[in-house]
Design a protein around this nucleic acid. Sequence first.
DNA 1: AATGAATGAGTGTTCATTCAT
DNA 2: AATGAATGAACACTCATTCAT
Lengths: 205, 205, 205, 205
Amino acid sequence: MQPKVRSDDLTFTEAARRKQIVAAAIDTIAEVGYTKASFAKIAQRAGLSSPSLISYHFADKDELIGQVVAEVCAAGGEVVRPHADPAASSSDTLRAYVEGSIAFYDTHRRHLRALMQILNGHPHARERWVNAANSAELDSIEQLLARGQRDGEFRSGFAPHAVAMILRDLLAGALLRLLGTPDLDVSAYTRELVALCLHSVEPVS
Amino acid sequence: MQPKVRSDDLTFTEAARRKQIVAAAIDTIAEVGYTKASFAKIAQRAGLSSPSLISYHFADKDELIGQVVAEVCAAGGEVVRPHADPAASSSDTLRAYVEGSIAFYDTHRRHLRALMQILNGHPHARERWVNAANSAELDSIEQLLARGQRDGEFRSGFAPHAVAMILRDLLAGALLRLLGTPDLDVSAYTRELVALCLHSVEPVS
Amino acid sequence: MQPKVRSDDLTFTEAARRKQIVAAAIDTIAEVGYTKASFAKIAQRAGLSSPSLISYHFADKDELIGQVVAEVCAAGGEVVRPHADPAASSSDTLRAYVEGSIAFYDTHRRHLRALMQILNGHPHARERWVNAANSAELDSIEQLLARGQRDGEFRSGFAPHAVAMILRDLLAGALLRLLGTPDLDVSAYTRELVALCLHSVEPVS
Amino acid sequence: MQPKVRSDDLTFTEAARRKQIVAAAIDTIAEVGYTKASFAKIAQRAGLSSPSLISYHFADKDELIGQVVAEVCAAGGEVVRPHADPAASSSDTLRAYVEGSIAFYDTHRRHLRALMQILNGHPHARERWVNAANSAELDSIEQLLARGQRDGEFRSGFAPHAVAMILRDLLAGALLRLLGTPDLDVSAYTRELVALCLHSVEPVS
DNA sequence: AATGAATGAGTGTTCATTCAT
DNA sequence: AATGAATGAACACTCATTCAT
């Protein structure tokens, strides 16, 4: 509580310190999990002289974690979501979405591992920070599928909402795989994943 | 380290106590998460007089958690794995495997929530307790897929290993969905999921 | 939170430890004040090996403080309150009440110093622990004064409620004096105080 | 210890800043108590950019608190003390002293609440800052009482010193009452209080 | 004259574990 | 077989104060 009269504009050094701490927090959480990621460990990783320096820059642990989540979401913001380009075919949009997601997961494993740890360790993380984004993403997929059905590009025998969920869950499962299998052949995995997705929605013959 | 080092000669009461404690641990972990599931809370839920009773019956927390994982795996052991009945078609086997898995997840949410919490909270849970089982399951799927391809029942254009992983991950994602969506329409979800799986492997015709 | 399944019956040793800790808390609070009376200092004074032993025996600081207040109130319970003995004259009852209060303050300075520190340092102490007792005491005085007026023993020109408050406040002031003046001539003080009280309520003649 | 050691040559701005800080300290202490009145809270209330500004203007917390006490005492300096006007009767002087004190308490509750908090929270406040003033006040009362006795205006049966103390304590108790009872009927209370004081010292007739 | 950044001791509380009984 | 008592490290967080600028 010491500093901050809350001037919503941050000093240069302040901003830098916060970034540094958030980065160290991401690494620490990714490595030891949310609940074991104490200020002491984070401070040590950041090379700070004392854990209290974190308390100095963040109101409490929740604010720090919130920043971590924000950082991760910012990184994936534009990528992880089907881009509704009317010019592109639904198939291509779907393919781009799946490929983009996996690529993002692949290049941001540390971020996403931290995010998963937070989601599992923090009692209110989901409702507070990611539920909204998830719903939006789900809607985007559903609309994409519905469009594909309307255009006759996708088979009409499935319920867009249920399949959207399944596709989303498929990506969630893929993320788990990626995080748990450091030496995964990502391009092969992606290739088959895309093929599977497309096969599963395309007309039967 | 007062109690048994060997697990062979467990007293009857000893075995009963351990089961009781493991059950309480599952409930507690499912409810509050692995890291917040202290001996105190587990003992309270089990109606024990003191947390030290847990230390008395288990060498340390890791042994208890190991037993919890074992219990959960035992519950799902026979179910969660494609049953290679040579008489059945590959499609039907696959369908049975997927449906069986989801059904098991649905009826054992508490167990699986606990398991997920442990996998996410314990630094070495995966390598120590579940990697082997996962590999075995993965192999079963892969063999099923290969058989289907050999028999011409499945399209031949995919790599059995990669697709096996993806199917496995799809189920992992489904589990996450189930745990996070208490009021999910499970039968609709299952129906679409099975359809998607079959579509994705069947010949293009 | 560690122990206690809350069996409302205390072990012998448990009860002894709690008494010991409460006693050390009283001494510590009396000496350094409520807010500076940390578990560390209390534990040190009680000769405990660690502050956490206090947390082991009391749910939190509030429970400990509550016990301290209870102990002090128990000590003064019967004393500090006018005893409505119908056989005694109102004057004698009043005299006994005032003398008894002062005597109690005198012999329990440490307890009362601790109580005052708590009342001043704890945000909710008054409403939680002593308001009820205070009101009851005030009522007793008021009734005594009213009786004295009815019997013609006291002059009729005062409002019993207001004067009851003033008498109560007079004792509060006396307590402050006693606590602030270790070498006070208590018997002289008491003598004059009683005289003053009686003079102030007796008929003008 | 960067700033002034001497208090003679205070810059104009310096003096203004100190006043501002002292005022904020009074409000803060009155509201949250001495021990919880951190530099951070005081600085925030004063609209300062940083708690360190307080350290800059005051050697340490004690110096600030000393100034707070001085400010409060200055406010009540002339009021709270019987004014030995030889022309007035002792009764009237006494009445004026009591009425004036209560009136002052009533109109300066915030100041006096802060003062009480300090006296109760600071280990050496009394001896360091107020004992002298209290003794002086006590002497004044004692002399007034003695004069009244000499003049035959007061009954001769009491010890001026002891009764002076008691009157002083009565006012202390009244202050506590005032601070603890925001909606007290002050004029009724004062009326009875004055009556009680006069009755208690006047001749029995 | 002022300030943002930093510091390290201190706060109450939780924890898995030990040990004598 | 079981238990109440105890322990000390760890936790997030607050504090008055220092210091370079």
